[in-house]
Design a protein around this nucleic acid. Structure first.
Ligand code: FES
Ligand code: FES
Lengths: 143, 143
DNA sequence: TGATAAAAAGACGTTGACCTCTTTTATGAG
DNA sequence: CTCATAAAAGAGGTCAACGTCTTTTTATCA
C-alpha cells in the first residue's frame, strides 16, 4: 500500500495548484517543484499528462502556467491512480497469480480481500476536493 | 497491495514443500518450479535464502532437496515479507513523503491509516501454518 | 574412488520506474 | 515582428526487480 512516486507527485501538485489558485491565477512548474520538492523535469511530464487529460489547464509562454478547471476538484482518486499507476493493482491477485478471483482464491485471498475492497471503495468515492474540504487540514503543511 | 513476485514465490513454495513433506521427505527445485510455474533458477535463489534463514532445510547431492523443519509452519507472514520485500512498505508514508506519521499526516494519511494497520496486524498474526490449517482449502489448487 | 545428482554461487541480461537534459512550440510584451 | 518565457516533447541515463545461464560445491552410491 505504498503508491508510485508519480501518484504522490500528481496528487500533491494538483492540491497545490487548487490552493494557490484561490489567490493567484496560474502556477508554474518551477514553483510547484520548488515548494513540493519534486524533480522539475519529471514533474513537467506529469503535469503535461494531467493537462492532456483535462484534469488541469495549461498555458504556454510568459505569464503562463497551470490552473484548475471546473472539474479538477471532482476528480476521484481512482482516476488519478489509473493515470499514474494503472488499475491493475486493484484487480490483480496479491500474489500475482491471475486476476483476483474468489472462486479460485490464492493462499492469501481470504485474508486480504476485505481489506482490499475497502481500499478500492475509498479510492473510488474520494475526490481531490474531498481531501481539501477535510476538517482536518494538518496535511496542508505536508503537501 | 500487490506484493513482490519473490514474496509470492517464497510463500507458495513453502506451502508446497509443507504439503509434499507429509508424504515425501524431500522436494527438489525442479519439482517446485514445474508444479508452481516459477522460473527455476530464480526460485533457486529464493529457496537458498529461505534455507540460510532456517525457514526450510536443504540437502545437496543425489536424493537431496528441500524439507520443512520444526519452525517452518510457525513463521509469520511478516517475517517472509521482511526477507523478500523488506518492511519499509509497512512503515513508509503511502505518498513516500517520509516515515508515516499521524502527527504530520500526508494528504492520504487519515483515509488510509486504518486500512493499513489492519493489513499489518494480519501479516503479523498469520503464520504459514495458519494458511494450511484454514478450513477453506480451495486455495490449494492455486498454490 | 569415480560418476552422478542436486543445491549454491555468481556473472550476466531485461525491463520499467524514476529522473535529467536539450530542443521545439506557443504566447504575451514591447 | 521580435524577443523572452514557459510548457511540450523527446532522447537518454540510472537503478532495482526480475530472470537466465554457467560454474562450483557437496553428497550419494556403485
Ligand atoms: S486470488 Fe490472490 S488475492 Fe484474490
Ligand atoms: S503520513 Fe502519509 S500515509 Fe501516513
Amino acid at each position: 500500500m505504498v503508491f508510485s512516486k508519480s501518484f504522490g507527485y500528481a496528487l500533491r501538485s494538483i492540491l497545490y495548484v487548487v490552493m494557490i489558485n484561490e489567490n493567484q491565477s496560474r502556477v508554474q512548474i518551477q514553483e510547484v517543484a520548488d515548494n513540493l520538492q519534486i524533480p522539475k523535469h519529471f514533474l513537467g511530464k506529469i503535469m503535461k499528462m494531467l493537462a492532456k487529460e483535462k484534469i488541469i489547464d495549461s498555458v504556454k509562454g510568459p505569464f503562463g502556467g497551470f490552473s484548475v478547471n471546473d472539474g479538477t476538484t471532482s476528480i476521484p482518486l481512482i482516476r488519478l491512480m489509473e493515470l499514474t499507476d494503472g488499475l491493475e493493482q486493484f484487480q490483480e491477485c496479491s500474489l500475482r497469480l491471475r486476476k483476483c478471483n474468489a472462486d479460485k482464491p490464492c493462499p492469501m485471498h481470504h485474508r486480504i480481500a476485505q481489506n482490499r475492497n475497502e481500499l478500492i471503495a475509498m479510492f473510488s468515492s474520494t475526490t481531490v476536493g474531498d481531501l481539501i474540504k477535510s476538517d482536518d487540514k494538518d496535511f496542508i503543511y505536508s503537501i
